[in-house]
C-alpha cells in the first residue's frame, strides 16, 4: 500500500505571532517556519506503518511555496521515500488543497492518506475531511490509534466525550491527533541522505484545478486585551458576583 503524507509549512510553534501593521495578515517576515506538528505525527505514523511492513512506499507531499521544500526534506529525513511539492506562492484554501491532493492520489494510486488534524496557522481542520469527500473514501479524523489488519482500518478517535472506535474500509483518509505517537528526531545521516532523495516540484496550476479563492480575508486583528475588572472585598462578595452578575457558579 502506498501512503501519501501531507506536510504543511507553518510558523514554528515556539514563535510568538504578531499581526502586521497593515492588519492584513500576521507578520511572517523572517519568522522561523517549521513542519506543522500534526503533520509530523502523520509522518511518524506512516514510517511506523512502513516499518511494520504494511506500507510499501511513503510519498510526502506539500502544497505551498518553494520554501516548503525544507519541510519536505524534514519529512524525507524522517523516512519518506520521495517528495512532491505542488508549488503555489498564494496560500490556498482547504477545498483547493483537497482537490489538488485528490489529483495526486489518483495519479499515484494511493491507498491511505495521512495528514494532521489541523494546521496551527489557519486552524481550519478541514482538509482531510474534504479530501475524503472528494475521493468518496472513508474518513478517520483526530486519530489517536491506527491499526490495520486484513485490509480494514481499526481507528480510535479523540472525541469530546472520550474515545470513539471505528472500523473503516480502505482506502481511507486519516487525520492525526497529538496522542497518536511521538515523532522521532531526524538524525544527521538521515538529513544528509534526505538531500539526495527524489523531490519533484510541480506548479499547482498544472493540475487543472481552479485555484481562485472563494474566501476573502477582509481583516486580521490582534485579539482584544482583557481589561482589569474590580477588586472585591471578601470571599462572600466574590461569590455573590460570580452567582448573580456572571452566573458561572
Amino acid at each position: 500500500m502506498k501512503i501519501l503524507v501531507m506536510v504543511k509549512r507553518v510558523t514554528d510553534p515556539n514563535v510568538i505571532i504578531r499581526v502586521n501593521a497593515e492588519n492584513t495578515s500576521v507578520d511572517l517576515n523572517n519568522v522561523k517556519m517549521a513542519i506543522n506538528p500534526f503533520c509530523e505525527i502523520a509522518m511518524e505514523e506512516a514510517v511506523r506503518l512502513k516499518e511494520a511492513g504494511i506500507a510499501t512506499e511513503i510519498i510526502a507531499m506539500s502544497i505551498g511555496p518553494a520554501q516548503a521544500q525544507d519541510q519536505l526534506r524534514t519529512a524525507l529525513a524522517m523516512g519518506a521515500d520521495r517528495g512532491l511539492l505542488v508549488e503555489s506562492e498564494e496560500s490556498l484554501e482547504p477545498l483547493t488543497v483537497a482537490k489538488l491532493t485528490a489529483k495526486v492520489v489518483e495519479e499515484e494510486q494511493i491507498g491511505l492518506v495521512l495528514l494532521g488534524k489541523q494546521s496551527i496557522d489557519t486552524d481550519n481542520s478541514q482538509t482531510g475531511q474534504m479530501l475524503s469527500a472528494i475521493l468518496g473514501w472513508s474518513q478517520g479524523t483526530f486519530a489517536s490509534k491506527v491499526d490495520i489488519v486484513d485490509n480494514t482500518l481499526n481507528l480510535t478517535r479523540e472525541v469530546d466525550s472520550g474515545l470513539q472506535s471505528l472500523t473503516l474500509t480502505l482506502p481511507s483518509v486519516v487525520t492525526c491527533d497529538l496522542r497518536l505517537n511521538e515523532p522521532r528526531f531526524a538524525s544527521l545521516p538521515n538529513i544528509m541522505k534526505a538531500k539526495r532523495k527524489p523531490l519533484v516540484i510541480k506548479p499547482a496550476a498544472d493540475y487543472g484545478v481552479d485555484l481562485t479563492s472563494k474566501i476573502k480575508t477582509l481583516k486580521v486583528e490582534s485579539p482584544n486585551t482583557r481589561q482589569s475588572g474590580e477588586i472585591v472585598g471578601s470571599v462572600a462578595a466574590l461569590l455573590d458576583k460570580l452567582k448573580t452578575e456572571k452566573g458561572v457558579i
Binding site: P94, M130, S132
Partner: peptide, 20 residues
C-alpha cells in the same frame, strides 16, 4: 469533534468552502 468531522465533508461534497 462531530461538527468538525462532518461539516467540512458536507462542504466539499457541495463544492463550497467551510468556515471553522
Amino acid at each position: 469533534t462531530n461538527g468538525k468531522n462532518i461539516l467540512p465533508r458536507v462542504a466539499a461534497s457541495l463544492d463550497v468552502s467551510a468556515f471553522s
